[in-house]
Design a protein around this nucleic acid. Sequence first.
DNA 1: TATTGTTATACTCTATAACTATA
DNA 2: TATAGTTATAGAGTATAACAATA
Lengths: 166, 166
Amino acid sequence: MADALEPKQLNTYFALMEAVSLLQHAVSQQLRAEGDLSYVQFELLARLADSAGPLTMTELADGVVYSRSGLTHQAGLLEKAGLVTRGPSADDQRATVVGITDAGRELVAKVLPGHIDAVRRLLFAPLSTSDLDALGGIMTRVRDHMRAEPPRSVSTRRSSKGSGVL
Amino acid sequence: MADALEPKQLNTYFALMEAVSLLQHAVSQQLRAEGDLSYVQFELLARLADSAGPLTMTELADGVVYSRSGLTHQAGLLEKAGLVTRGPSADDQRATVVGITDAGRELVAKVLPGHIDAVRRLLFAPLSTSDLDALGGIMTRVRDHMRAEPPRSVSTRRSSKGSGVL
DNA sequence: TATTGTTATACTCTATAACTATA
DNA sequence: TATAGTTATAGAGTATAACAATA
């Protein structure tokens, strides 16, 4: 126990992980039942729905998926379901641009109310307004910190000689 | 968009989910590399190491795993690896009690420093002391709220006639 | 030479249903 | 009749490596 986290840190860490795990599980069930979507698929659709225009695979991956093949797989499923389209990019001939279809937008719209409901009921119900502000500030900062630091997401490909973990 | 979360809530929700996803991914890599453990397996071992004595499968499951068969599977893997033992319970003949072995404790001890390091670097580095207090309080409250509310975890078995999602 | 994306493949995790045994 | 746990099995998600094509 030489270099343990302070107990307060440890408790915070475990509470965070367990709470989000429970939340993840609940919203995943909701998305599966109401839209036959995994959480990752929902995230991808939501990003596309929110975006001004189509996104490249790499742009779409950032922060959502941690391997290129994983994204290709998911995008393939969404395309087969008629929720997104894939096509060549004009700017960069290597890139694939992904756009959301009307059916995709409709599905997001169909699933969103129940999703919002679950998040409100499970996450926000026990929180005050100042809790919300605090949590928002903290998690935004943490997210940005982790995005900036290595280990980075998909965009940097691992070098072939295993660099170890982190 | 009739009943959307307030933008502040939505941003908070997404920041929380993305930050924890990144954290989960990073610590999973660390645990896999240094101890050949999944995060769930680490959690199970850590609980057992922290517990005064052996736990039943149901006690062990709570908050960690969402299906009984999943836990049986993971416990089987840990047992095969010599990290835990399983045996009949004295109190309740139906129950299985799970205990951690010396090898299990050693593995936790081996893996923990790197784990703590990653959590500090990724989660706590950008947070102040008051952030830590706030986050701890908030996430503890959220976790307890979700534990209390349905959808409950494993302990309640689903009725055979599909009760829908939540 | 580095980057974008796909393919093929293998593996892990998870969940459902059917089952045994005990309370 | 309800609960604890296991088994068998199937499906979904993810990652690695090898590959083709473009920058």
